[in-house]
């Protein structure tokens, strides 16, 4: 899974700590997702999509093989 979290954070001038607070997770979790070492649950993905006002699939991008 690829993610645009870092790019979107930079766009909105938000640090990891702030995003973590708004998404009700730890900064460590945000960092793990950004480093693509952890696939978040649907609930966290929805919260992040709402924070950035973007569709989930444009933030978390899966390879064709991963979803088929």
């Amino acid at each position: 899974m690829k993610t645009r979290l870092k790019e979107l954070r930079a766009r909105d001038g938000m640090n990891q700590t702030e995003l973590a607070k708004r998404a009700k997770v730890s900064r460590q979790t945000v960092s793990l997702i950004e480093r693509e070492e952890f696939v978040p649950s649907l609930l966290i993905a929805v919260r992040m999509a709402r924070i950035f006002n973007e569709p989930i699939e444009s933030i978390f991008i899966f390879d064709k093989e991963e979803v088929e």
């Binding site: 997770v25 730890s26 460590q28 979790t29 793990l32 952890f38 978040p40 649950s41």
Partner: peptide
């Protein structure tokens, strides 16, 4: 009380 990322680690 740990979140899913912390539990994963």
């Amino acid at each position: 009380m740990s979140d899913e990322g912390e539990r994963h680690v």
